[in-house]
Amino acid sequence: MDVLSKVVELIRLFTSLLFKSIFTYGYIDGRRVPTLLNLAVLITQVFMARGGVENVLVVLTAVILTYVVRRSERAIIYSSTIALIPSIWYFIASLPFTLSPQTSALISLRVFTISLSTLCFIYFLNPVEVSAIIKSLRLGNAALFPTLTWKVIPHIMRDVETALLISKLKNVESWRSLATSILAAEEYTSLYEEGLHSKPEYRPSYEYSSKHTLITTLMLLSLITSTFWRP
């Protein structure tokens, strides 16, 4: 049962980290940047990270700077811990093929950077803007999905965390608690349906932060320039 309780503790830790790396801080100014601009930054960073070690380090610096400039320094710790999981895995899995710790370390660093960049994109995603985009495409109730997802996931993740704590206290298999969490989530589906039934039509609206939009545009331009500029 000791191994089991360690596994449960790991799952709980992972759930808690994932929660903190995406949902902390509320609606900060850094989330008022156009989603398409953030997406362009992400694509550029992924493209750049495929290059040499210098490129990877430039991208990593850009990602960390994004968190710092947008006043979400704590999220770096949580996101980095999550990003470490695939990067360590890639290091171990690639070593038998590369037979070179340096090459595997570069692969690992690349995976870490791309993971962190992706988490950064998700962290600063403005679900209200995504809803508004879907609404403008006249996709009906689908406009509610992004904001509802952002509202529901923290709720469910907290439940998973509580259920896993209880499975540990009760000394029962963690899958039982996970199953209970799924049943609870299923109940929530119908409760949300009831709750939203009589609400007025959802018309999402949003505003951009000119300061952070400008900074992000400059960062994108710098990244593109550094990709193509060779002294």
Partner: peptide, 10 residues
Amino acid sequence: FFISTPYVWS
């Protein structure tokens, strides 16, 4: 279950 967006203003 009445609330469907992540922020008070939204």
